[in-house]
Amino acid sequence: MDFGSFLTAPEINVKVITYRDIFQDKAMLENRFGDEYKDLSAIIKLDHADFKQLDVKKGDTVILKNSFGRVVVKAMESGYETPHKGIAYMPKSPWSNMLVSDETGGTGVPKFKDISVTVTSAKGEKVTELML
């Protein structure tokens, strides 16, 4: 066994903000279970500094987890010039919904804009598949 096998993968905490995407919506209308929809939906967009801290590359899979669920998605750089360390973006989708609290505070509407998750490298794991 080598020394590296005892080290844990870097882990960061981020707040996830969900958003709607017209290209993702178009892909969903064409085939909700197709590869194009998955490629546009099963992603998290991270700040450049968060990318470096996690030691992942664009398109690598990462594990997102909190007390409500666990999901594997692809990591992408957000591309925003203004730094937003600790804030990540995900399209509204079944993948982001796996992390949403069932608590609604009496409103009946889940909190899609303020999801706290821990992010770690998935080291080659595949994106979480949707159950039919």
Score class of each variant (00 low, 15 high):
P94C: 06
R20N: 07
T18R: 12
L7P: 00
A9P: 12
V14S: 03
L64T: 00
L29S: 13
V71K: 04
L64S: 02
P83H: 04
D47L: 10
V109R: 09
G59A: 06
K52M: 15
I43M: 08
K123H: 11
T128K: 04
R70K: 14
D50V: 05
V14G: 04
G86D: 12
F33P: 05
G79D: 05
N13S: 13
W95D: 07
I115L: 01
G106Q: 03
V14A: 05
F3W: 08
G34D: 02
F112S: 07
T118H: 01
D114K: 11
F112M: 15
K113S: 05
E125F: 10
E36F: 04
K15F: 08
P10T: 03
K74C: 10
I43D: 05
F33V: 03
P91I: 09
K52T: 08
M98I: 00
V73P: 01
F68W: 10
F23H: 11
I44S: 09
F6K: 01
D50L: 14
L46K: 05
N13E: 15
V119I: 14
D47W: 10
L132D: 07
M76H: 10
K123F: 06
D21H: 11
F33S: 11
K38R: 15
N31M: 12
A42P: 13
D47Y: 10
P10N: 11
F112G: 00
I87K: 10
G124D: 09
D35L: 07
S116W: 09
M28A: 15
R20I: 03
F33D: 11
K85A: 13
F68H: 14
A49N: 14
F3H: 01
G34R: 01
V117Y: 01
K58A: 09
T104D: 11
G34C: 02
